[in-house]
Design a protein around this nucleic acid. Structure first.
Length: 360
DNA sequence: TCTGGGGTCCTAGGACCC
DNA sequence: TCTGGGGTCCTAGGACCC
């Protein structure tokens, strides 16, 4: 039999919590919640909760204050330590990249795709799990698919510490009766809009009229969602280095800002930091964006192209301040972000895009 | 009850040009 | 008197992911 091209999706189990427990072995078996500065009275959210904490209904994205209310007395709250996770992530990726005949594409700290041609994808998956465990003492789950979409979704069925295979053959058997929200790239908003067309399950999405989906979601996304219903998606694992298109800095204030002077000061600080991240890559900045969350909930984003690409921090900060002068500073500001968008390096824009958001 | 911080890509609609 | 059609660029905002 001819070997087949497979996509493996490797996802670390409770990565951040696992890294923390590794350096504090006495925390093993206790509910561990990592987020913000580790102070559950602050405005911040949970980055990762250990499986013991998830049993109490605590999960990623949940406000720390809520998590504190649900948590049992022996729960431990820890601050986020980016450097530790970068280091652990690097060790994991190096280990996986060293496996024979694999192509590796990093998606995040704790996730990657492996492209491999083999008769025995489960064997490769187990070899990957073993290698990562030996090198880092961390566990992972592996989804096996005939494309990225199916591999990514398969991983959920493999957790924890297991593998699962999802292909054209068993797609509808496994996914057909599940809700559209379980598809990678369909969030709560799209789920709701689909439901307004009577589309609630994966099978119904696959059977939907593509023309109706295009009319509702546009030419790209309409087709993309229809394909998702069938489990169709890109199958090429690309190991070319990721090139950032922009950098941003965001801050949530423990006390809301209440006047224009405070807002301008914060914009200056954030703009300088975001700009420096871009210039560190040696690429001029072409655009400035501001993101504001007014108390309590309303979020606004505005952007402006610079009159010319710039490598001068003063130009960029001035443009950010100018843009901020259009904000409604009568209202209290609880979150502020500045994004700096860069020119693409030569040929960088030729990379094929897929509508799956984030780093795929 | 309270919602981080870092990203990417898509769409609608207006301006402008030929 | 009525008012093309196609293309590109830009802004604002939406949605999703880790």
């Amino acid at each position: 039999m001819e070997p087949t091209a497979w996509v493996l999706h490797v996802d670390m189990d409770q990565f951040i919590a696992a890294v923390e427990v590794l350096r504090r072995p006495e925390l093993a078996g206790r509910p561990v919640i990592v987020g913000g500065h580790g102070d559950p009275t602050e405005r911040a959210v949970v980055s990762t909760a250990s499986y013991e904490a998830r049993a109490f209904g605590i999960g990623s994205g949940m406000p720390l204050k809520i998590a504190a209310r649900k948590a049992p007395p022996d729960a431990v709250f820890l601050p986020v330590d980016h450097e530790a996770y970068e280091t652990a992530s690097g060790a994991v990726m190096r280990t996986l990249r060293a496996l024979p005949r694999v192509v590796l594409e990093v998606i995040g700290w704790d996730e990657c795709f492996l492209g491999v041609t083999t008769d025995d994808p489960e064997g490769v998956a187990r070899a990957a799990q073993r290698a990562v465990l030996d090198a880092t003492s961390l566990h992972c789950s592996v989804g096996i698919g005939d494309n990225k979409v199916r591999a990514k979704i398969a991983t959920e069925f493999g957790k924890p510490r297991g593998t699962f295979r999802l292909t054209e053959q068993n797609w509808f058997e496994v996914m057909g009766e599940r809700g559209t929200r379980e598809l990678w790239g369909i969030g709560s908003r799209i789920e709701k809009r689909l439901a307004e067309h009577g589309i609630r399950t994966v099978r119904q999405l696959a059977d939907a009229d593509p023309g109706e989906l295009v009319a509702e979601f546009g030419p790209k996304m309409g087709v993309w969602y229809h394909d998702l219903g069938h489990g169709r998606g890109p199958a090429v694992v690309d190991d070319s280095p990721w090139v950032a298109r922009s950098h941003s800095r965001e801050t949530t204030f423990q006390q809301n800002l209440t006047n224009a002077a405070e807002v301008e000061e914060a914009v200056r600080t954030l703009a300088a930091q975001a700009f420096d991240d871009c210039v560190a890559e040696g690429r001029p900045v072409v655009r400035v964006h501001l993101k504001v969350r007014y108390a309590p909930f309303d979020t606004k984003t505005i952007g402006r192209k610079l009159s010319a690409p710039t490598t001068d921090r003063h130009d960029f900060v001035a443009a950010a301040v100018e843009l901020a002068s259009g904000l409604d500073t009568q209202r209290e500001v609880r979150l502020l972000g500045v994004r700096a968008e860069m020119t693409m390096p030569d040929g960088g824009d030729a990379v094929e895009r897929t509508p799956v958001r984030g780093r795929i």
